[in-house]
Amino acid sequence: MSQKLIDAITDMRENDALSITDEMLQSGTNPLDVLEACRKAMEVVGQRFEDGDCFVPELILAGEVLKQISEKAKPLMKEQAVSAKDLGKVVIGTVEGDIHSIAKDIVAFMLDVSGFEVTDLGVDVPPVKFVESVKETGAAVVGLSGFLTLAYDPMKATVKALKAAGLNEVKVMIGGGQVDEQIREYTGADAYGRDAMAAVALAKQWLGG
């Protein structure tokens, strides 16, 4: 059954995935097993994205399916789900002056389903907010997203602010459609990632996941 659910999710058969979930839950499958199948399915989707066999529509659809399945499973759960988020903490946001959320949301979602505890600061986030959040959460990785070239300078300012606050150990990754290696160098960030899975790979590399 679990495998059928995994296949339905990874083949992007939304209706099948939902009906299999219903069947599983009605026949008394532990909701935690259902969620575990989802996690495995997302691993496959992520891998396919990395391999160039899956694209943004599939990430978005899989995310949507996942949301619906957890809405079905969560109310039936007796025990609290043991947090699978043990890979480490990441703070993410779209930098100051930039109000775009779509890319940042996809990156945050992929980090989340990959097992990171993600603090999403939203959009138009000033440097001090990143600093405060890192201090509060103890996150070891910060992700900065920016849609437009106007984000270059705020990214640079954010990296600087983190350093100025003494958070030298924190690794900073940046990304967005107009971000590349030259901008990584310009901003002083530790790495730049081309897409959402690159963000996951970087975080894993740094946090040893």
Partner: peptide, 9 residues
């Protein structure tokens, strides 16, 4: 000609 180069190059 990249926007990154025109800004940071």
């Amino acid at each position: 000609v990249p926007g990154s180069l025109l800004k940071a190059g």
